[in-house]
């Protein structure tokens, strides 16, 4: 038993956990390669990335929300609503303006969420549950529960056709936004302050950071991203439907959590979310390839998600162990020096 405990306590194990996204991704790719070698072809990869792009956009929007310690369940509904707007107004305004309008709808929905959570101080779970119901119902009302078609199916192809044989426009947009978010989170003052807001809101306020403004902003961002996702999705299939995005919210949350962003706030990364999405993309592709039925895929996703949050809970109770690259390197160096202060493990 003690041996087991020591194993779990070892730096190796904790290092593995910290970099679990990478580990899982490598594992996933390896397993996939064994099971279905053809998926490592470029075209396959491009296709799986594309498939995940829509969920990915929602997931990217969710990442700052979770870092700020909040939840947003309405992404899927906003996606549907924006898509419907982008298609529905095509006749009136033309395709591009209608698409822009769709994005505006996303922004407005985000503002509604922000209002509920920040101004009315409603718990974000309940607030976005309510707004999800509302937006979804709105979508159904506007379309009379029937999908609507756009004017020109060829227009959307621009989005979903691989450009020059590489990646689709959709994929490129999604990767671009992730990279931008990553930069924002790691290199801008506002981005770093967001971690403070999510981790210890009281101390953030005490340091002069306006937590409420930040939280407001994250919901608007999340809504906007869901809006963009919805517009792109609808354009690519030239259809706006009130049932789009029904499972997107959960898949997006799964990707974000798999990618290492904590539900309690204060920790997360855009690249991590990308990693989580890649993991899910790989798994989905493999399962599709093997003709695994949809419900089994669901089971797999659910189990992985549970295992990961369990792992997170289990490991987060082990404070005082730094296993970042820099620290690991330094500890190797330090073994030759006497430490200034004995590093004590937190009780």
């Amino acid at each position: 038993m003690n041996g087991l405990r020591r194993a779990f306590n070892s730096d190796t194990f904790l290092g593995l956990v910290r970099y679990r996204v990478l580990v899982i991704l490598v594992l996933a790719v390896v397993i996939s390669a064994i099971v279905a070698p053809s998926i490592l072809e470029f075209r396959s990869i491009s296709l799986s990335l594309d498939r995940i792009a829509t969920t990915g956009l929602v997931a990217v929007g969710l990442t700052p929300v979770l870092i700020a310690g909040q939840l947003d369940l309405s992404g899927g509904a906003i996606l549907a609503l924006s898509g419907i707007t982008a298609i529905g107004f095509q006749e009136q305004f033309g395709q591009l303006p209608a698409a822009a309008l769709g994005i505006v709808v996303g922004i407005l929905c985000g503002i509604v969420n922000a209002f509920l959570v920040v101004i009315l101080r409603i718990n974000s779970l309940v607030a976005t549950l309510a707004s999800m119901l509302f937006f979804r119902a709105l979508s159904h009302t506007i379309t009379d529960s029937r999908p609507i078609s756009g004017i020109d199916p060829l227009f959307g192809l621009a989005v979903s056709r691989p450009i020059e044989g590489t990646f689709t426009l959709r994929t490129i947009i999604f990767v671009l936004i992730i990279v931008l978010l990553h930069v924002w989170l790691t290199r801008t003052v506002a981005g770093r302050n967001l971690f403070a807001v999510g981790s210890n809101p009281a101390s953030a306020e005490a340091s002069g950071i306006r937590s409420r403004v930040f939280v407001f902003g994250t919901f608007v961002f999340s809504g906007t991203m869901a809006g963009i996702a919805g517009v792109i999705q609808s354009l690519s299939v030239n259809t706006g439907s009130p049932v789009f995005g029904e499972s997107t919210a959960l898949l997006a949350i799964a990707a974000v959590v798999i990618g290492g962003t904590r539900l309690e706030g204060g920790r997360g990364s855009a690249i991590g979310t990308l990693g989580g999405l890649l993991v899910m993309a790989t798994l989905t592709t493999v399962m599709e390839f093997k003709n695994v039925p949809a419900f089994i895929q669901d089971i797999v996703t659910g189990v992985i998600l549970l295992l990961l949050i369990l792992l997170d809970r289990f490991v987060s109770s082990k404070k005082g162990r730094d296993v970042s690259w820099t620290a690991l390197l330094r500890s190797l160096h330090r073994r030759r020096q006497t430490p200034e202060i004995e590093r004590t493990h937190a009780p």
């Binding site: 770093r192 971690f195 981790s199 210890n200 101390s203 002069g208 204060g266």
Partner: peptide, 19 residues
Amino acid sequence: NLVPDLSVEENIMLGATPR
């Protein structure tokens, strides 16, 4: 009153981060 997930330097200058 520290933010555990940020670095020492970020915590030291929290709210007054040089930009």
